[in-house]
Design a protein around this nucleic acid. Structure first.
Lengths: 213, 213
DNA sequence: GCATATAATTGAACACTGATCAATTACAGG
DNA sequence: CCTGTAATTGATCAGTGTTCAATTATATGC
């Protein structure tokens, strides 16, 4: 049948992304197909190609949503405390929590490769930058005497570490036990990027006090 | 045509894995198919199913090879120095180098999901454990007064961080520039797990940390 | 040397996939 | 009511993983 106009283009795209998210969440990225999405939204494959360039495009836009959701979640968590170090720990916990809750969708963000040299849309990078900013701002609050460029490096290294830990945890490639012990490792990582915790006096020059117990 | 017996089963499997590695290396994991592998080794798809259970099995065994190669490479690099901290830096450099050199194959190791609850073969875990041991041994040499359990946690956190950094770097999801700056971040990360946090130390390292393994 | 059994190998088949596009259909404007 | 336009379909193409009856080359027994 021809033109139904039951849904506008944006609506159809939205429904399709909803369906895609549900499929991925339920049965993993391998189960995601144009035909299955079409089936779920009650349209035919051809209709989807009015709204998406191809499957890659659909995936990229799904990932965009996922990253937006993640950024929103981290932003909310960041407001729950005023202490920068506490905030960092909350952020890592939220990141791990999101990865554990939406494992398939989260993995799809990082494991989907778009062909050739084309890369993700600017809005995607925007959300990424937003997350990065949360980390770097808290790090700056903790290390006020460190210059901005160094803070940025710290933030990248720290967050890449958090990400790696979460990824290995989520994919079962970590011999560590449950989520609790992963959070322990995350805290350990954060601890390494933060000056000596409370009990000891702050002595940035001497190295002896940094020996962990 | 029937039985040729030009190659034994193991030989055929070896040839197929060679071909698979070449395909993945050249055109990425998406280009890897049973038919393409068969074409390259001069056999038909059916023949491959004598030697592999399915495509997943082929991929797992390819990944096994990749991890073995990586473990070998890291082991070799570890012998190039006696100073534990230097060793750690060399290990990170070698890890990054491998990821950059064999990007597609390396990504396949970490991005391939095998269905349901089945997981990688024991030999795979063996290589992984071997790599982990290199890290933890060097960490123990650096932190002689730290108990074993804590060392293990440090090693996991550190190496997950290194892994995350390399993964983000290799997938272009790091705004950092070239390999040199990634290595800077890796050094920064190692520096955070090593007593002297200052990146540039004026004096040579303390003799206490030079304890060989 | 020849028949036979055995194991390797093929190639066609099935059910799926992404993607394209002529044909069809429903709606809006005149 | 008609007509043009835009949405939607469904068939089609080339590709995929996987299975399996049929075929064939080799090794073995006689």
């Amino acid at each position: 049948m021809g033109r139904r106009n039951q849904h506008s283009r944006e609506e159809l795209a939205g429904l399709a992304l909803d369906a895609a998210a549900a499929i991925v969440e339920r049965d993993g990225p391998a189960a995601l197909s144009m035909r299955e999405v079409a089936r779920r939204v009650g349209y035919t494959v051809g209709a989807l190609y009015m709204v998406f360039i191809n499957l890659d495009d659909l995936i990229v836009r799904l990932n965009e949503r996922t990253v937006a959701e993640l950024a929103l979640s981290l932003d909310a968590v960041n407001r729950k405390s005023r202490a920068p170090e506490q905030r960092l720990r909350l952020l890592t916990a939220a990141y791990l929590g999101f990865a554990l809750l939406h494992t398939h969708r989260w993995r799809l963000v990082f494991e989907h490769r778009l062909p050739d040299g084309q890369h993700a849309p600017p809005s995607y990078r925007g959300h990424t930058a937003g997350i990065f900013k949360l980390v770097s701002e808290n790090l700056r609050a903790i290390l006020p005497r460190t210059e901005a460029a160094a803070i940025d490096e710290y933030a990248i290294a720290l967050w890449a570490g958090v990400h790696g830990l979460c990824m290995l945890a989520v994919t079962g490639k970590l011999q560590a036990g449950g989520p609790a012990s992963v959070q322990r490792l995350l805290d350990l990582l954060v601890g390494r990027f933060v000056p000596d915790p409370a009990p000891r006096s702050r002595r940035p020059q001497r190295t002896g006090s940094r020996v962990p117990v």
